[in-house]
Design a protein around this nucleic acid. Sequence first.
DNA 1: ATGAGCAGATAGTAGCACTATCGATAGTTC
DNA 2: GAACTATCGATAGTGCTACTATCTGCTCAT
Lengths: 226, 226
Amino acid sequence: MRMSELSSTTGATVPTLKFYLREQLLHAGERTSPNQAQYDESHVRRVRLVRALLEVGGLSVARAREVVAAVDAGTLPLSSVFGVAQRAVTVPAPLVDDAPTPTEGDRLVAQLCAARGWQVYPNNPGLALAARVLDTYAALGQERLHAVLEPYAEAADLVACADLAAVAAAPDETEMTNVVVVGTVLGDALFAGLRRIAQEAESFRRFPLPEGVPAPGSATTTDEDC
Amino acid sequence: MRMSELSSTTGATVPTLKFYLREQLLHAGERTSPNQAQYDESHVRRVRLVRALLEVGGLSVARAREVVAAVDAGTLPLSSVFGVAQRAVTVPAPLVDDAPTPTEGDRLVAQLCAARGWQVYPNNPGLALAARVLDTYAALGQERLHAVLEPYAEAADLVACADLAAVAAAPDETEMTNVVVVGTVLGDALFAGLRRIAQEAESFRRFPLPEGVPAPGSATTTDEDC
DNA sequence: ATGAGCAGATAGTAGCACTATCGATAGTTC
DNA sequence: GAACTATCGATAGTGCTACTATCTGCTCAT
């Protein structure tokens, strides 16, 4: 197919596709002449992936480029792909050069990892991210929120197990890579959405509205313990 | 204190503080003359909150303004504050005006809510977000990832229970509002961090490295089932 | 053979989160 | 009381990002 068909198939405008080509988010088509090229199904898939990463995953173009490069490499060890995907979705801390001393948050996270038997490389981006949030809680005088750490960790274990099970269910290495990338980047958004729903549902359970009929959404109010 | 002291206390530059004042992220100080004002502890706390929302929570200035307005209102019903906080952290879908027809993702989410007894208003932003991600999985040919929905939902319940418990532990209504806002906005980041750690740990458990010593991070490898 | 489509390149746009500067005034210090 | 620094409000500018527009050749179907 040619560019205009790629455009109509994927919904991305022709200038946007050119932009993706320039930014190396999209591999070039097969040239049929100095100014003509053919695109195929792989380009359609790539454009869909890129748009999912950018729009749903909220990645920047630069991060998305790293992710598609990892997908293209194809033969990276699985842990490397995880690393790339994880780093792509993790907003970088603003580089404090003067204080690499461990904070209280670092200590809490290390303690949690030890308690749960989580063995990870010290450059795992989640370590710094979690520690940073805990430090921010403390800076805002919300140490009370440190109490969520344990249940959050339990939930993270559940989610990670599901993630890895999905990866293991993939038929081949290429598919595994795809599952890792898509699942890691979009999984954050999926979980965030479910958390919003569960929060509201739980909020109604704990603090019922006085008289108005609350949520006509679903079934009868269950009383599962929490 | 005056602006320069507020600046040195919080780490935000004077121009940045002026910007926050203009953008109504920071309430004005008490005027002592036409061009002088005094700031107090409430301003320090506010600046810290704003910076946490912007830097750690990744909110835009506009979203952060909505959040601080909700905090200032102070007397909103809890569910409203949750709504504001949730909407603030949820990236809006790009407004498809032509197709409000329920997608497969909407159907899956509704089914999940019914199964779990989650009763929520249909405008809960999590509903659309989760459905959108599921549709994106399908568009990328990764329906296999739909299998994560159940464990994710279970994990979301855990997290939401912890969230609400933290809210309930707050001593008064003002504090509750703060916990909701801070917990909702930064909680996503905290969970994302823990998920990264758990993913890597689980990845090593499922796919052990051949010979190299993997993670010198923490304790001995546990074999808790997954 | 002509008009639409395409490639590559350069330049422009809109939004965001600040940042710089200015003139007028206020407090502070010598 | 003069010099100096700090502040206020306002306007304008900066650097970055994710596109978007336009231009110049070319090419290919009709």
